[in-house]
């Protein structure tokens, strides 16, 4: 989690949403991710999606079955995965997610919707969450980021209210 927080800090310094994550399999870090929305002009390039791609690449390079690897991978992420990422983690059948602070705006593990534990037979499998680890540090970074505003996001009418969290 220390490393995930350091990556989030790096993202903050680069003007991206400060979320960092690691995917760990057999005590080995197979995937690292931070938000890449601005570089790719693709709003779905969240830290978790980037890390999933790295684990898939590792599987291809090491001739491992991705299904077997993801089934024994733990995700460490500084912020609760959003609804999209929570569904993606289900589809990859990752069993456990350790995260820091809640994601009040988009959270998919209880804050907005509970995708992580819902009964969705066509969207992979539910996963367990361990929440709140070093949440204060993670939330402070988000606050700093939203105070300076995301220069790449469109103007939003509801933004002010959301940022008060």
């Amino acid at each position: 989690m220390d490393r995930a927080l350091r990556m989030a800090k790096e993202a903050l310094e680069n003007g991206e949403v400060p979320v960092g994550c690691l995917m760990v399999y057999n005590n080995e870090i197979l995937g690292k991710g931070r938000n890449e929305v601005n570089e790719t002009k693709n709003a779905t390039r969240h830290a978790e999606m980037v890390a999933i791609d790295q684990v898939l690449d590792w599987c291809h390079q090491h001739d491992k079955d991705p299904a077997e690897v993801f089934a024994h991978t733990v995700l460490y992420v500084t912020v609760e995965p959003c609804i999209m990422c929570a569904a993606a983690l289900r589809l990859m059948k990752i069993p456990l997610v350790v995260y820091g602070c809640q994601n009040e705006r988009f959270g998919g593990c209880g804050s907005v919707l509970n995708i992580s534990s819902a009964n969705l037979t066509d969207t992979g499998e539910p996963f367990q969450c361990i929440a709140g680890y070093r949440a204060e540090e993670a939330v402070d970074m988000l606050k700093t980021f939203y105070r300076q505003e995301n220069p790449n996001a469109p103007k939003s009418k509801v933004r002010k209210k959301e940022c008060s969290k």
Binding site: N42, A43, T44, I83, M84, A86, L91, G108
Partner: peptide
């Protein structure tokens, strides 16, 4: 699915 529907919110 939920992933795609939320991806469209983000987009």
């Amino acid at each position: 699915c939920a992933m795609c529907a939320m991806a469209l919110v983000h987009s």
